[in-house]
Design a protein around this nucleic acid. Structure first.
Length: 388
DNA sequence: GAGTCGTGGCC
DNA sequence: TGGCCAAGACT
């Protein structure tokens, strides 16, 4: 497959199809009629015209015609990585209210950022968010780089996010390709090659949808299209500005795109969690900086392994003086991570006032648990353990 | 390149 | 209701 490059000509196979791609009916029709204009050339304008009428109003988007704030674009793009618009909204508002610009965030502590991020998931994003703010202040005088390359060098900014910020905030002529755009483009061109192998091809095809200007709007148009019309299931093709151009719709099998390589699901892991109270306080610790739920707060637990023996898990209970006996709560707490499902049994105990926390652990008032950096798994565990 | 990394919503 | 999906990055 040819390398990604804007404006590159696609190779055609002997059968008259683009490599891994079906011809769009519009192109074929144009050729049969012998019309000189290439229908494909009109797509960027069709897309932008649709966007100007139907763009979503989102907290990080300025009013039409106004320049985007790179800080808000960056913050929203990080939050939106693998996370829905609806979920991100309140978090975005909370963040910009507390930290109105990148320098303010750079002055905040990592702990404060993690606490504000709690519940959003993928916590390395919060760590990189803070590191990025610090880097922009320290290495770029508080001003975001305006090139894809400069952005790409910052923590937490990969190929997609660098292109998105460059296009949306700085008007650079580049096309970020996210899950929405992959779906729209793979249907538009009926890309038969499965993901993720098809990524370079899709990047190249997506770039053909950029017009001469308004790169950021072109990208956001495709994202809005993918989110509201060209949806994974039951796409509303009748409302799509590119429906006449769409190869998949021409064949009537839109929903089979994008093709994807089958994914394997992880095996169940099990363990035990220990909810220890001291009056109105709860025993907690902080997870290691890196890895699963890195840097987040948790109650002590056993290890989580596939062939977990209940007895072995319970033997990993923390050693706290004053615990007469453990109470095993009925039922289990279940949680599904991307790569494995988890099942935790919950044991509880209460200890006398002034009992000391074991090494590496601490007591926190139950009344302030909402402000702790607990991932949702731990909120479920604690709710289960404290339930009467 | 394939694994690792959360969470909520959807049908 | 369980699998799929969502504006991916990092190793």
């Amino acid at each position: 497959m040819p390398a990604t490059s804007a404006g590159m000509t696609l190779e055609r196979s002997a059968r008259g199809h683009y490599s891994g791609v079906m011809n769009s009916p519009a192109i074929a029709k144009t050729k049969r009629r012998g019309v000189a204009i290439d229908a494909a050339a009109a797509r960027p304008a069709l897309l932008l015209a649709w966007y100007d009428r139907h763009r979503r109003r989102l907290p990080w988007r300025p009013p039409p015609g106004e320049a985007a704030d790179p800080y808000r674009v960056w913050l929203s793009e990080i939050m939106l990585q693998q996370t829905g618009v609806k979920t991100v909204g309140p978090y975005f508002e909370k963040f910009v209210a507390r930290w109105p610009d990148v320098e303010a965030m750079a002055r905040a502590s990592l702990d404060d950022v993690l606490r504000m991020w709690a519940g959003l998931g993928y916590y390395s994003r919060a760590r990189n968010l803070h590191a990025c703010a610090v880097a922009v202040r320290r290495d770029h005088r508080g001003v975001f780089p305006d090139s894809e390359e400069g952005l790409r060098a910052l923590p937490g900014i990969g190929p997609y996010t660098a292109a998105a910020i460059a296009a949306i905030a700085f008007g650079r002529r580049t096309m970020p390709v996210d899950g929405n755009i992959e779906r729209v483009v793979s249907r538009l061109f009926a890309v038969e090659e499965p993901l993720p192998q098809a990524k370079p091809l899709i990047q190249q095809l997506a770039t053909t949808l950029l017009g001469a200007s308004r790169a950021g709007d072109s990208a956001q148009a495709l994202m809005d299209l993918g989110s509201s019309i060209c949806t994974p299931k039951k796409p509303a093709c009748a409302l799509c500005p590119l429906n006449d151009e769409c190869a998949a719709r021409g064949r009537g099998d839109q929903e089979i795109f994008p093709r994807k390589a089958p994914k394997k699901t992880g095996t169940l892991r099990r363990g035990a969690a220990f909810v220890v109270t001291r009056g109105n306080e709860l025993l907690v610790r902080t997870r290691p900086e890196k890895g699963l739920l890195g840097g987040m707060t948790e109650v002590p637990t056993s290890d989580w392994i596939a062939a977990q023996d209940d007895k072995a898990a319970l033997q990993q209970a923390p050693t706290v003086k004053g615990i007469a006996r453990w109470h095993r709560k009925a039922g289990v707490v279940t949680h599904v991570f991307t790569h494995f499902p988890l099942e935790l049994v919950v044991c509880t105990a209460n200890v006398p006032a002034r009992t000391r926390a074991p090494e590496g652990m601490r007591w926190v008032p139950i009344a302030t648990l909402a402000g702790e950096a607990f991932p949702n798994l731990m909120r479920k565990v604690i709710a289960h353990g404290l339930r009467v």
